[in-house]
């Protein structure tokens, strides 16, 4: 389990950093930069996670002799992917902040950067929390896929426990273990969502909402 959590937090952080950069580039950057970001987004959202992880792990290892430990490859691959999704979230949030805000800030004499920092960002950040909570849940669940390259996270562990118990108890245990594991994921998701919910409430400003949609 610790691996699962580490992986989740690690890649969310990485994705956050990269994602915000990309989001800004897309909203405020010049044309070629925007174009590049768009491609990045499309590619990293269009490829299945499993394929991506494999590319980073076996692909790099066998074709280019770049050997990455399993955990690292999973982390990088998933982080890059999460960045693509997060950039969407932030981009949406930034664009949801109405234009008038920027105009008002500039009218006061702020530079573009000042305006972004003091006016747009605080608002966009709050708007982004609900969909980001979604992303958190998704990411937590997707860490199970890292088991494909032998990262010892929750799902893989359940497999190991099962093989050990199989010898002693038989096949029925598979289901019980899996259900248990499912419940653990549920609990983790619930705790995470609750925590983020608290955050959202503490930062809430009345009358402020983003018209988002539930995305996977």
């Amino acid at each position: 389990m610790p691996n699962t959590l580490l992986l989740t937090i690690g890649l969310l952080a990485g994705g956050l950093a990269l994602g915000t950069l990309i989001a800004f580039a897309q909203v405020y950057g010049c044309r070629p930069l925007r174009w590049f970001c768009r491609i990045y987004e499309q590619v990293f959202r269009g490829i299945p996670i499993l394929v991506l992880i494999m590319i980073f792990h076996s692909g790099l290892a066998r074709s280019f002799s770049i050997l990455l430990p399993a955990f690292a490859s999973a982390l990088i691959a998933l982080a890059l992917r999460s960045a693509a999704y997060q950039s969407q979230i932030f981009r949406g949030a930034i664009q949801s902040v109405s234009e008038g805000q920027m105009l008002a800030a500039r009218a006061l004499g702020m530079t573009k950067i000042q305006a972004i920092r003091n006016v747009i960002l605080p608002q966009a950040f709050r708007l982004a929390i609900p969909p980001w909570t979604n992303e958190f849940s998704s990411v937590l669940k997707d860490t199970s896929i890292a088991s494909a390259i032998s990262v010892l996270e929750l799902f893989k562990q359940s497999g190991l426990i099962y093989t050990r118990l199989y010898v002693i108890r038989g096949a029925h245990w598979a289901l019980i273990i899996l259900m248990l594991v499912a419940l653990i994921y549920l609990a983790l998701t619930y705790v995470g969502n609750a925590a983020l919910g608290v955050l959202e409430n503490r930062l809430r400003i009345p009358g402020f909402e983003m018209r988002g949609k539930v995305e996977r």
């Binding site: 669940k141 499912a182 994921y185 549920l186």
Partner: peptide
Amino acid sequence: RGTPLLVQITIVYFG
């Protein structure tokens, strides 16, 4: 929605 797809398909596969 709260549990990983991987876990679910494995459960169904065995169950």
